[in-house]
Design a protein around this nucleic acid. Structure first.
Lengths: 345, 345
DNA sequence: CATAGTTCCGTAAACGTTTACGGTAGCCAG
DNA sequence: CTGGCTACCGTAAACGTTTACGGAACTATG
């Protein structure tokens, strides 16, 4: 005899009463409920997840899908760990558990979803590393599986999404650099599948145009979102006949490699070139400290969770005014990497 | 009508045959199997996970438990993403899925296990951030849930474990530095709960003793395993009356902050002090490049998976000679941060 | 032709829960 | 005493699978 039956037998009451007692249902004497809870603790009983979700049609699990093995966004684990923490803070209130669904770099993300999610593994999903065209979105929308994406996509099934405010960052960075006299400003972008590259570069172009300046095509640097990519960018940049006087880095970790390549060439950020980047724990420990855009990842996680829950019928009424779409603002952290000014002539 | 019944009705055969056909059981005509598979693809049928695991008593899911919100090990996401990738490479062969179980920093890890794992959520577990005394180990051992830990623990229930070879690193680093004339060598360690600190420091002490040298207590630096921790260490170190001439850093990211604090004081690694650390993608992009110990995280993941499977009855015979315990060797990557020599006098 | 063996398939039980439903006992009002 | 209400509890069905078992239809063997 196992499970709830064992508990019921031990207490000499029916399994129905045991179940009701454990789940806080009303139709049970407070005295017996107390006995049940005590016995459950004593015997170490925990309800079987499969039995429960089979009956209820719900798993109380939310999946956060991330890809392993590759670096798509260059957002390190610090990034995810912080976001996770915010998400969990919300889910804990509803007895939901968060797990990270790890899609191997060997497997197509949509196949992965079909394999694991379509079997009723999770009640809802958070998608990260959203692609510019993302078939996962259609897949989930067709099946009516609640989800929210971290990152906008051209694929639009009316899904909720949150994203970082790359437009705001582009606008603020360009305005700031132009105000300091820069006229030839470089920007970086990740590879073609990543939507934020388009969003960011387009807005940089607009912001420059508003000042009557062009975004020169050879000043748009494409790279992998890691240290080596930043290193390569700096090398390419310095090899130009007429290098730019300022640059905006879109990824976090590329700053490290970028600084190093500059250093090897005797070029110093803030003195010889203006650099603006993204915050990461190391940003403050570069020489000079990186001027960068930061946001609260924990708060972002909280917002992700609330937006997802507002898309789930069972929790919708708890979050009446959670935004379905939102760009998350970033704040500027002043460093000394962008103090280089260009005088008008 | 839903699920397998719908499929069976559509094909006008029994659900038993459908199930056998889908699961590759022998007692089914190849012709009908073909029809079933086609119909399943057409109707988009995927078996329900709860129903299946309720019946089989197995979930085909392996959990990799990590803690969110806090930085315990200072191993970034790059660390986990790479390990995950190796683990998945093995699991894919057995149709096992890997998910990361995210334990909030707000919750006790053992309570977490009780809540989610004890309900039959996963068939096996990989534990990371193993503590010096870790109650999770007892909990899992009592319940006969197969698991392997990444990191040794004093808590010994005969569980399999893998760990990085901190002894080998300590020995090689100390020998190398002593050979270059250093006699006052500092080491770092994480906070008290983390076992590797004891392992590492103890071996450093032994290695020094073999050369007739002491490990001075005030040259053991304790810090958080992040950039800020490294910064603080360097500040404390430079403030000493008689700073050491060499240091071995046990965490990956502390090197960045350490370098920065040195730089601010005009002290240069390789020229004024010898530094040896741990590999991370940024190690090569520091100035000068960090001499560090590296290992293949993907291979480590593969070994973790194989060791876990060899502890699971259902897969034991596939991995007859997977080691139950192993320290994973690290290789030295030569940089220029440890070229500083001290002449005997 | 009888028997045994093989191949394939259908039936039904089982996994561990939750929950709709009905029933009993006690109480109170008429 | 009757009827209705409340409080509590037991029964059994249901969730979607897998699989042991048995049986039907053939084939092969003697």
């Amino acid at each position: 005899m196992k499970g709830i039956r064992r508990l019921a037998q031990h207490l000499d009451i029916s399994i129905g009463t045991v179940s009701r007692a454990l789940n806080g249902k009303p139709d049970v004497n407070e005295e017996t409920r107390k006995r049940v809870l005590e016995a459950a603790a004593e015997l170490g009983y925990v309800p079987n997840q499969s039995g429960r979700s089979l009956r209820q049609g719900t798993t109380n699990i939310i999946g956060f899908m991330i890809q392993t093995g590759t670096e798509i966004t260059g957002q390190g684990d610090i990034f995810f760990m912080s976001v996770f923490d915010g998400v969990q803070a919300v889910f804990a209130r509803h007895k939901l558990d968060l797990v990270a669904l790890l899609c191997s770099s060997q497997e197509d993300p949509s196949d992965y979803l079909r394999r694991v999610v379509a079997r009723g593994f999770a009640d809802g999903l958070i998608l990260s590393a959203t692609q510019r065209n993302d078939s996962r979105i259609e897949f989930l929308a067709e099946r009516n599986i609640p989800f929210v994406t971290l990152g906008r996509s051209l694929t639009d099934a009316g899904q909720p999404w949150l994203d970082l405010d790359f437009e705001g960052m582009a606008q603020a960075a360009i305005d700031r650099l132009v105000a300091r006299g820069h006229r030839r400003i470089a920007v970086t972008r990740p590879h073609d599948d990543v939507n934020l590259g388009y969003i960011f570069v387009d807005r940089c172009r607009e912001a420059l145009a508003a000042h009557g300046l062009p975004l020169e095509e050879n000043l748009i640097f494409r790279s992998t979102p890691n240290e080596a990519g930043g290193y390569q960018i700096a090398r390419d940049l310095l090899a130009l006949d007429k290098p730019p006087t300022a640059i905006v880095l879109i990824n976090e970790t590329i700053a490290i490699g970028f600084y190093q390549a500059l250093s090897e060439a005797g070029v110093k950020p803030g003195r010889d070139i203006a650099v603006i980047g993204r915050y990461s724990p190391h940003a403050h420990f570069l020489s000079p400290p990186l001027t960068c855009f930061r946001l609260s990842l924990r708060d972002l996680g909280i917002a992700l969770a609330e937006t997802l829950l507002s898309a789930m019928p069972a929790f919708k009424d708890h979050y009446p005014d959670a935004p379905a779409n939102k760009v998350w603002p970033m704040e500027l952290v002043e460093g000394e990497s962008d103090t280089f000014r260009v005088s008008r002539r």
